[in-house]
Amino acid sequence: MTRPVRTPRRTSVRRRLAALALGALALAGLGTAAAAQLSVETRGVAAGTSVVGSCQTGTPVRVSLVSTFTGGRYVVTGVRLRGVAGPCVGRSIALQPTGPGGAVGAEVRGTVTGADQTHTLPAALVAAQVTGVAVVIHD
């Protein structure tokens, strides 16, 4: 039993083959790494801050109802706002009559016209069912 003799030429070839294999493995690794990346579309993200204030300061707005007696009961046909501050004039307004179970009737949208104003409801509501009116004044 004789062991094969390693010649310098054969060793050099083996080293080159090993280098080639390592190179191939490195390339495969790079491809995998590249595949692991995700192409993300460029988008802008911006953020800012601003103080949201109230146009009504000081005296609170007085909310009353326009009621008439019809058919043996009081019905509400409108909402009157008094004491609306000047900075609120010209802004948008939304009013929603409410009852014990939530909203009653349809929302009314409009514009603040002055310190004293009346907004007519699209349909008369039974006064006994109206316990509140939610009002929002916004830009």
Binding site: A46, A47, G48
Partner: peptide, 22 residues
């Protein structure tokens, strides 16, 4: 610069109208 945004100040006023007595 892209991370800052100019936001105009705004107002939001809410009023909850109710009867003077329940």
């Amino acid at each position: 610069q892209a991370a800052s945004l100019a936001v105009a100040p705004s107002t939001l006023t809410t009023v909850n109208g109710q009867a003077c007595t329940t």
